[in-house]
C-alpha cells in the first residue's frame, strides 16, 4: 500500500520528534535528514501542530518538539490527519443497488481495509520506535 506524501512526511516528522521528546528540531533539519521538501514539510508541521502532536518553539534554536503521548498516539492517528484510508468499499457496502460481481469485489476490498486499519490502529509511536531497537537485535 502507498501513503500520500504528506502522510509519509508527517509520520517521519512526528516519529523523529517522539524519538527524543526533550529535543526540538526545525522543519529544515528534518527535511534535510529525510531528503524531502522543506516547504512541503513546513505545511505538514502546521497540520501536526493543529492536531496537538507537535508544538512550535520560538526563538534562537527554535523548531518543533513532540507534544503528544507516544504510548497512546497510533500510526492511524497521524495518518488520518492527512488522508482517509481505504477504498470506497465501506461506502459501497451500504448501497442497495449493487451488482453481484461488484458486491463480491467490495467484500474483498472491505476485508483488506479492515486489516489495514486494524494494523495502523494497533501500533503506537512508542511501539514503532521500539521496533527499530528490535530490528537491530536480529
Amino acid at each position: 500500500m502507498k501513503l500520500q506524501k504528506a502522510t509519509q512526511f508527517g509520520l517521519y516528522a512526528v516519529l523523529e520528534l517522539a524519538r527524543d521528546p526533550q529535543s526540538q528540531k526545525s522543519a529544515v533539519d528534518i527535511a534535510k535528514k529525510y531528503g524531502i521538501s522543506s516547504n512541503h514539510l513546513a505545511k505538514v508541521m502546521r497540520d501536526l501542530g493543529r492536531a496537538g502532536l507537535v508544538a512550535s518553539v520560538r526563538g534562537a534554536g527554535g523548531g518543533y518538539r513532540f507534544s503528544g503521548n507516544s504510548k497512546r498516539v497510533t500510526l492511524m492517528d497521524v495518518i488520518t490527519i492527512f488522508e482517509e484510508l481505504g477504498s470506497d468499499a465501506s461506502d459501497g457496502l451500504n448501497s442497495p443497488h449493487r451488482i453481484d460481481i461488484e458486491d463480491a469485489l467490495l467484500s474483498v476490498l472491505f476485508e483488506i481495509d479492515e486489516i489495514t486499519q486494524a494494523t495502523f490502529s494497533s501500533i503506537t509511536l512508542d511501539t514503532l520506535l521500539k521496533t527499530i531497537h528490535w530490528r537491530g537485535q536480529k
Binding site: 490502529s121 503506537t124 511501539t127 521500539k130
Partner: peptide
C-alpha cells in the same frame, strides 16, 4: 480480533507482528 485494539496494541508492544 481485528477490532480488539487493546489486545492488538499490547501484543504489538511486546514485539509481535503479522
Amino acid at each position: 480480533a481485528r477490532k480488539d485494539q487493546l489486545n492488538m496494541s499490547f501484543f504489538r508492544a511486546q514485539g509481535m507482528m503479522g
